[in-house]
Design a protein around this nucleic acid. Structure first.
Lengths: 158, 158
DNA sequence: GAGAACTGGTTGCTTTTGAAACCAGTTCTC
DNA sequence: GAGAACTGGTTTCAAAAGCAACCAGTTCTC
């Protein structure tokens, strides 16, 4: 049977497989050894990087669903890893930031995660790493520019 | 707060975000317009590419869990998209291949998916595409070579 | 300034997922 | 050749994800 689509050269497949393997391998570090879930880890990193944020913003920055963020935040607050204070500009929202314990936990996990990433990137020369991130940037940009439903967009006017 | 880990330059994060966006965008084509799930789509492509396979092999080729394959296959068989015949060498296993309907469905989806991929890859020059796949290859290779639990592996001998 | 339309965040509920138990058949080992 | 160890595949069950409904507060509109 003739076909142009081969899995080994099909970006959605390759990218998905890679992301999955990376995630599984990395998550072992914080899940097994520090007892936090993937969602919690993402919130942790984001707050460590940006300081004080609204849940909404965390959701945007991490590409997580807002309910996922909401639940992770609740769990982390329950464990004393983060604090929330009311936002004076908008009383619906709350501002989140890591507690001392949360920052400390992050401080312990970070070097291990970075070491793991270094070992993953080891076979790539510095220039190659730059290229990799540049390519990812381009693809994300293109994705954002692409129409939602190709060839179906112009059925009928809104 | 000083930290070396920035999300925009953290491969697990970037790769995951990219894969997710790609998957969501692409899956619109086959989910909304052809009514098959992501898992079914993967089985479809794999069988289209390789012809007749055991479920085990499909599972390896697609990096899907074996239960995911089992369920997708059951659903597809129910819809008449694939056939199974007993494997004479091993009576536990079954050999799967697309039915005429399945092949026809694939024939209709493939060009749309390829067109979508082309539009995604449009901003990359041919050489850049090669580079991208080469980098992914390297990373997957490295992942396979990395120890399961870094720095914990040598606790005690087996 | 009072309703409509909207938004941040949470909760409930259904669908999806994955781990582990399981079944049937195969291979290994003595 | 009979048991142990293993493997392909399905089922079961518990955790996780996602959708939609919802609440409370905000903004828009007339």
């Amino acid at each position: 049977m003739h076909h142009a689509l081969s899995l080994t050269r099909f970006l959605p497949y390759r990218c998905n497989a890679l992301a999955r393997k990376i995630s599984v391998s990395l998550s072992r570090i914080y899940t097994e050894r520090f007892g936090i879930t993937v969602a919690e880890w993402r919130v942790l990193v984001t707050l460590a990087e940006y300081g004080e944020l609204q849940a909404k913003r965390v959701s945007e920055l991490t590409n997580m669903d807002k309910v996922q963020v909401s639940r992770a935040v609740a769990a982390m607050q329950g464990r004393g890893l983060l604090q929330r204070r009311p936002c004076e500009r908008d009383s619906r929202a709350a501002l989140l930031c890591l507690s001392a314990d949360g920052a400390e936990l992050y401080r312990r996990i970070e070097p291990e995660v970075l070491a793991w990433e270094q070992s993953l990137l080891a076979p790539l020369a510095p220039a190659e790493r730059d290229t990799l991130f540049a390519l990812i940037d381009k693809l994300e940009l293109q994705l954002a520019a692409m129409p939602e439903t190709p060839a179906l967009d112009n059925r009928d006017a809104p």
